[in-house]
Design a protein around this nucleic acid. Sequence first.
DNA 1: TTACGATGAATGGCCATTCATTCACTGATA
DNA 2: TATCAGTGAATGAATGGCCATTCATCGTAA
Lengths: 210, 210
Amino acid sequence: MKDLNKRSKIIAAATKVFAKKGFFTARISDIAKEAKVADGTIYLYFNNKYDILISVFEEEIGKIIDQIRKILATETDPKKMLEMYVTRHLQTMKKNRNLAEVIQIELRQTNKLIKEYRNTKFIEYTDMMADIVRLGQSQGLFRADIEPDIAKRFFFGALDEVSRIWNTSAEGRYSVEEIAGQLLKIILSGISAPNGGLADPDGYPAHMPA
Amino acid sequence: MKDLNKRSKIIAAATKVFAKKGFFTARISDIAKEAKVADGTIYLYFNNKYDILISVFEEEIGKIIDQIRKILATETDPKKMLEMYVTRHLQTMKKNRNLAEVIQIELRQTNKLIKEYRNTKFIEYTDMMADIVRLGQSQGLFRADIEPDIAKRFFFGALDEVSRIWNTSAEGRYSVEEIAGQLLKIILSGISAPNGGLADPDGYPAHMPA
DNA sequence: TTACGATGAATGGCCATTCATTCACTGATA
DNA sequence: TATCAGTGAATGAATGGCCATTCATCGTAA
């Protein structure tokens, strides 16, 4: 039987190598060397280079989804949930820079390479955020004139860009907690209902979906 | 004299091709064909493939910077300025999908390829946003406990992710105006001072830079 | 002895880059 | 006006290097 453990060893190695060199400049032989495995061995576990990338991505995002699901289950307050999501995301990306980079690459390149591939895992992940927003809205805690499906993109983009910076520049000026705190301030006061969810004194018209 | 016009023709072609195929899968011959020029001609104007990418990026970002500078000069209210920045950015990216994609690629790949390259144009662009935030803070309009240098990343990330979606999925559900409006709601109520910039009733501690 | 995972050298294709050659234009000469 | 070098841009076929993928072979566990 093929060694399941070896598969994860390769995935771990690939994550590292992709992060460091980027998908295209990474060589299969780099991954093989990092995993302490022969080049050919990789093809016993994966169809081709793209397949490795996708596997890395899905596996890792899957892990995060599970973790965050578990955490969110312990909470019912949407504001707290948002806080948990953001904090957890940033913590994970900080701890695992490589993963953060692979997400960046994958998100922006794969759909050009493999058109058939619909990134369900990623959608699942960001939809969790949209669901939290919806929950908050139904409780009158979040403003009703925000579209959850736009908000989720917005928030994910913000989180992603922040962790991109960690990896790119050596900007260690701010701690995870500090950044998470700042983002949460903006997000929470950005979507909170002005006065508990009744009228909107700022005069923003409520959004009407078509 | 070398034809200056030809240089821009190549840049335009490269923008298109990079956007469609991504930097790495784009072939020089693709760009040449798109620009209606021989392969070799490209090397009369650029040193190599990366050079084309960087030139595309700087040229295009440069244009946006000039435009936004001009627009901002007509305004003194930081809230309005923020609004202009966001709207303009989204409009530009919507009108020129290719540019949006090139920015994505460039931002996430080049620094792996060419370590010497410090992306000053991009920094200049996002710093404009940080400056607006600072201005608003000095006038007591924006909350003082937001770090402009974190906020700028956050906002840029959000904008960028939103325009990524335009290009990736065929999500034409929302109009530019609608999305800009939503983002502005979140951003503005996210950083506005709770009560005109005096005390902070929400109990957020003011941020103290180290 | 068999079966099967692992190996890594060899293959083949791709494509950035080069460069010998062509082309187009200028202006000097008669 | 016709002819002829001289100049430098433009061309695109050929080169060379790189690297994903393959597969003949090896080692080993049952």
